[in-house]
């Protein structure tokens, strides 16, 4: 797990620099082998990542935009969502800053962005149908799309397996 995360970060960095010299570890070079390059790149880019704040982010195929939402685990813990405060478009945020809030069962909870960037779209469906977050938290209930400032930030997050282990630990 640890080595995969390191490889991931180095790989993402090499995507922007287009330089092999920055990749210190041999396994990164293997990932960059011509035959597997396209496949490895897209598989990694499409993988959904999770934060300890229970948000998820998924990169678009051009890796410039990320879609953000709250995890199914969080949606269940929140209970019936009755209001969603959406971020405004063009809002510039740093990783960990609030990009919105939800109210459920008398509880106000902030939603944090997993990565830095600029908000390019908010999910207007949630204005009229906030319960979409409960019905489809990791698909139709997405909160916002962000123009990602540094794709490397995403690689440091948990994959589905690691997040599942994280929530099981929190519940125990």
């Amino acid at each position: 797990m640890a080595s995969a995360a390191v490889a991931g970060r180095a790989f993402a960095r090499s995507l922007t620099s287009q330089s092999f010299a920055r990749c210190a570890r041999p396994q990164v070079l293997r990932l960059r082998a011509p035959a597997s390059r396209t496949f490895a790149a897209s598989a990694r880019a499409f993988e959904k990542k999770y934060t300890e704040d229970h948000e998820w982010i998924e990169l678009s195929s051009d890796k410039k935009t990320g879609t953000i939402g709250v995890s199914a685990y969080a949606a269940k813990a929140l209970g019936d969502v009755v209001y969603v405060e959406l971020p405004s478009v063009d809002l510039e945020v740093s990783a960990g800053e609030s990009i919105g809030a939800v109210e459920s069962v008398k509880s106000a909870s902030d939603i944090m962005t997993p990565v830095s960037g600029k908000i390019v779209e908010a999910n207007a469906v949630l204005e009229d149908k906030p319960g979409t977050i409960n019905q489809s938290p990791e698909d139709e209930g997405w909160l916002a799309k962000i123009e990602v400032a540094d794709a490397a930030e995403i690689e440091g997050l948990m994959d589905a397996e690691a997040y599942s282990a994280f929530t099981e630990q929190a519940d125990s």
Binding site: E52, D53, H54, V105, K106, S107, A108, S109, D110, M112
Partner: peptide, 8 residues
Amino acid sequence: GSAYKLTR
């Protein structure tokens, strides 16, 4: 009456 504010 109860109300809540939840953070991480």
